[in-house]
Amino acid sequence: MTANSATMGPTPAMLAAWDNYAALCQIIFESLRDPTATTASTQSLPLLGAWQDLAKMWGMGPGFAAAAPLTSEQVSARLIPALGYTREYQIVVQRMIDLGMEFQRRYAEFMQQSAEITQTALQAVQNRTTSDMNLASSPAALYESWIDSAETAYAQAAHSEKFARTLAELCNLLSSFKVERGKLVEAFARQMDLPSRAEVDSLHRQVRELTMALRNANSPGKRPPRTPRKRLKAPRQ
């Protein structure tokens, strides 16, 4: 991996990563073909570097949480504008990347809140064990104490507006992502001459309209009167 790879556009960086991946496959294949060969074990593999650079460029640090996530503006700035006859699809993909980055940022917030809950719960367990030594001598009692403390800490946080907003944001971002993904699937289905979601939806609407029309045509007002009923028990009041 070259030193300036992090400043490359996304396509060369991704190509470099795939190139390394292909090299890894080649090495593994060779070692499988000839188990006595020492190539794979002795050679230093520069294989993850390109992926790490790519991940870093997209704001994803090692272990998911370490790097400060990029804003969607930062990511968008690194992508060239959609061009050419596939530009409409490129825009959808760019939007999905934006949503992915925003999701990552919100998820980091959510994980931060979760970490605070765990911290509070652990503190509570520590306080309990300090005041009751018997607790520390029983794994079962200790576990019960952990669950009680964790649920208490969680309930306190979960009822806050901050938590509710973070959770809803995550949900809304995923929903948006799903909508964009649907556009690509829709286009793919059209290209393959498969039934698309839009077509099926249209049919469902028509079936529903027909069902309602049929039901209205057969509604009680348009049928012959029924036989008189006997009254078992009327509403009391």
Partner: peptide, 30 residues
């Protein structure tokens, strides 16, 4: 409290709400 800020128009734009999603929400209560 949790559903107050969920955009239901957006959530249901891609179809039915899955049982798995609901279960995840219910489990997340405790």
């Amino acid at each position: 409290k949790w559903v107050q800020y969920i955009d239901m128009d957006l959530l249901t734009q891609s179809g039915n709400v899955s049982g798995e999603f609901l279960n995840m929400i219910f489990l997340a209560l405790m």
